[in-house]
Design a protein around this nucleic acid. Structure first.
Ligand SMILES: [Mn+2]
Ligand SMILES: [Mn+2]
Ligand SMILES: [Mn+2]
Ligand SMILES: [Mn+2]
Lengths: 219, 219
DNA sequence: ATTAATTTTTAGTCTAGACTAAAAATTAAT
DNA sequence: ATTAATTTTTAGTCTAGACTAAAAATTAAT
């Protein structure tokens, strides 16, 4: 069945919200991410349920069905592959690609995305460290930790970010925090939970808890 | 001012219809190419006139304004550059790219298309031999002839096609007629205006007037 | 010059996807 | 257990962009 742009955006956002939790998700949480009013969300949820892409009980929240999830994953696959293209081939920075990929992810073609995948040499992650779902909708669970959760004095590698707003990514760039960086947490400050850390063998820098929480690392 | 997808498609089609002629173009001719009813076209023409992209007098036809033309050209630029990308980088055939480019041409980004242009090494023509407008909206007049109009026994080069339907392009491919081919017309058959021609030094082939008319050549 | 045929516009309608205001249901607080 | 606060849904509205049917204007035919 064909999907409209609006439907695709809803499915993607519902996927993101479902990811973390086993609970059904709320109308308001969707409204917040889509920048729509709750009433509009209710409307769309009824349509999506009608099409069999979500299970929805009024007042009780919503979840993706298997089909809904596979649609969401195909859009995420497209989003991330296009982001790789924009960075690897066109020379964009990682903080500049999200808005463009938001548009490109809706291009509809049976063949396009697989040819793009092949052209890019089958990347496994996007410029933000996020895994790229396979054609079959498989997405590896990478099991990264938030930098705010690692043990002291243990070296870890920056593998991704939990947020892709441009200002956040620009801040990381300015701090010299990029994918692959070797990090060691020296101290968690108990007052404001700010973090003192070393990048490679450089002299220590400070980052806020807010930043540390959105950095994903592998130990 | 922002342009919607529907508006962009109308402007592009109006551009195509204006190209050939000095006359204002008719509501019906637009309706035919957009696959809309005349009433819907009238509606849109009023909106486009309101925005200053066309001059429109009811019952008297329509033309693009300077601004309307520059919007149309920027969409055509995007369409053709994406077609080059699809053929050169992703390995599509020339008969497979039109529909996908119809979608890609609407991606909106200040920087994207120029980065793409650079990545493709500033191509001057698309896979169908059509010229690519510059960033400033300049488009060279190539002055090609239709193969149905050339002189007998004069060698010419296949430079483009006047039609990009997939079946037409597939036929050319099957006949071994591709951009750059060296052609020599041996005879125009007076009965059905079919054309006998040689490709390079191969043995002669026959094509219909309909085909010859849609092949563009340089003498 | 009239009349007929054709083209174009107007008037009214529909759908998707948004909105606001009010009603209903759920959850939190006493 | 009731009441208050919060969340969600319903009802009604709006806009863009399509449609059909009927009216109006233009063009072609006598
Ligand atoms: Mn992104
Ligand atoms: Mn990303
Ligand atoms: Mn094309
Ligand atoms: Mn083309």
């Amino acid at each position: 069945m064909a999907t409209s742009l609006a439907e695709e955006n809803y499915l993607k956002i519902i996927y993101r919200l479902c990811e973390g939790t086993k609970e059904d998700i709320s109308t308001n949480s969707i409204a917040e991410l889509t920048n729509n009013k709750a009433a509009s969300v209710t409307d769309m949820l009824q349509k999506l349920a009608e099409k069999g892409w979500v299970t929805y009980q009024k007042y009780q929240g919503v979840r993706l069905t298997k089909i809904g999830e596979s649609i969401a994953l195909s859009i995420i696959r497209k989003h991330r592959l296009w982001e790789v293209f924009l960075v690897e081939k066109l020379g964009y920075n990682w903080d500049e690609v999200h808005e463009i990929a938001e548009q490109l992810e809706h291009i509809e073609s049976e063949t396009l995305i697989n040819k793009l995948d092949s052209f890019l040499d089958f990347p496994k992650i996007d410029p933000h460290g996020d895994p790229i779902p396979s054609q079959e909708g498989e997405i590896p669970e990478l099991g990264y930790l938030h930098l705010s959760e690692v043990k002291l004095n243990e070296t870890c590698t920056l593998m991704g970010v939990a947020k892709d707003s441009a200002v956040f990514l620009q801040l990381l760039t300015k701090l010299n925090l990029s994918l692959g960086a070797r990090l060691e947490v020296l101290e968690f400050n108990t007052f404001d939970r700010s973090v003192s850390l070393k990048i490679a063998e450089e002299k220590p820098i400070f980052i806020s808890h807010e930043v540390a929480k959105n950095i994903l690392v592998k130990v």
